[in-house]
């Protein structure tokens, strides 16, 4: 019983990492309707920028802010260069461009910093572990989970309580109609990428510190998992992404904890396929019909 509980907590901490990436992912997908393959890699860039900050002696918060700002602009740039022109032309070309961008970020980073693992200098974050009736959880777990919750609230506020958010929702619902109503669609999309990429950078730094190891390919698998989490929760739904992430983490943890550690990734992808077939709108997503 205790083991099962501990496994669920392990899943919760893994899941909150997925959730942390997934909230930004789902926002961008909800509005642009494009799988931003590069999202996980923006996260990776964020981790490296934050690492550079901490190596220069900056503290946790300043490094985080610098990484978020740098990646926010990187996100806008990515959208401008790789997606803007091709988005209206062809979905498949846009997707191809996104895959290209993902690998471009990975290998450009590798070219400059090498493939070797980097670690954060000790002392940026003091680590503590808590033991609650035999269940062990670290302050890093709480930090990741707490950040995710804060981000969800923050995003919900932006999306439902601000003018920008209203524009985002309009663009998401029908881009052309939004344009006719005088909404600057391109600007709205840029803002979406700005916010989403800043969140990715925050996730990158936290995950880098969580595992205390970053490398240029660190965004690849978590990026895919975050996408699965977003689909599971309902694409475009920010609370859904969090829920999806945590559920995915717990499932994986249980699978790995009870003998199937090799099939952890496989199970994640099978969940994806099942959700898409049985309930394409996910747990909290809205139903939309394909228009002719």
């Amino acid at each position: 019983m205790e083991e099962l509980l501990q496994q669920l907590f392990n899943g919760l901490s893994l899941g909150s990492i997925y959730a942390l990436i997934a909230v930004g992912y789902t926002m961008i997908y909800g509005i642009v309707k494009l799988i931003n393959f590069a999202h996980g890699d923006v996260m990776m860039v964020g981790a490296y920028v934050a690492l550079a900050g901490t190596i220069m002696g900056l503290g946790f918060i300043p490094s985080l802010v610098i990484a978020m700002i740098a990646c926010a602009f990187l996100g806008v740039l990515i959208e401008l260069v790789a997606y803007r022109r091709v988005r209206p032309v062809s979905r498949l070309a846009a997707l191809t461009s996104a895959i290209g961008m993902s690998l471009f970020l990975e290998y450009t980073m590798m070219y400059f910093v090498g493939a070797e693992i980097r670690t954060f200098p000790p002392g940026v974050l003091t680590e503590r572990t808590y033991n609650w009736a035999g269940i062990i959880i670290t302050n890093k777990d709480l930090l990741v989970l707490g950040t995710t919750v804060v981000l969800v609230v923050f995003l919900q506020f932006i999306i439902y309580r601000t003018r920008t958010g209203k524009a985002m929702r309009a663009v998401s619902y029908d881009g052309q109609a939004a344009q006719l109503m005088g909404i600057n669609v391109n600007n709205t999309i840029s803002i979406t990428f700005f916010i989403g990429s800043a969140l990715a950078a925050a996730a990158g730094m936290l995950i880098g510190m969580y595992y205390n190891s970053i490398n240029p390919l660190m965004g690849m698998m978590p990026g895919l998992k975050a996408f699965i989490a977003a689909v599971l929760g309902g694409i475009g739904s920010v609370p859904g992404a969090m829920l999806g992430g945590i559920l995915l983490g717990m499932t994986e943890s249980l699978v790995a904890g009870f003998g199937g550690s090799m099939y952890r990734d496989a199970v994640a992808f099978i969940i994806l396929i099942l959700v898409l077939l049985v309930r394409p709108t996910g747990l909290l997503g809205k139903d939309t019909q394909e228009k002719v």
Binding site: S13, I17, M218, S253, A256, G259, S261, D265
Partner: peptide, 20 residues
């Protein structure tokens, strides 16, 4: 006896299981 693959970064599930 527990396994993992190269891209894994989370090992707590396997370790919990081993520890039991």
């Amino acid at each position: 006896e527990e396994g993992f693959i190269t891209s894994d970064t989370a090992f707590k599930s396997q370790l919990t299981s081993i520890s039991s």
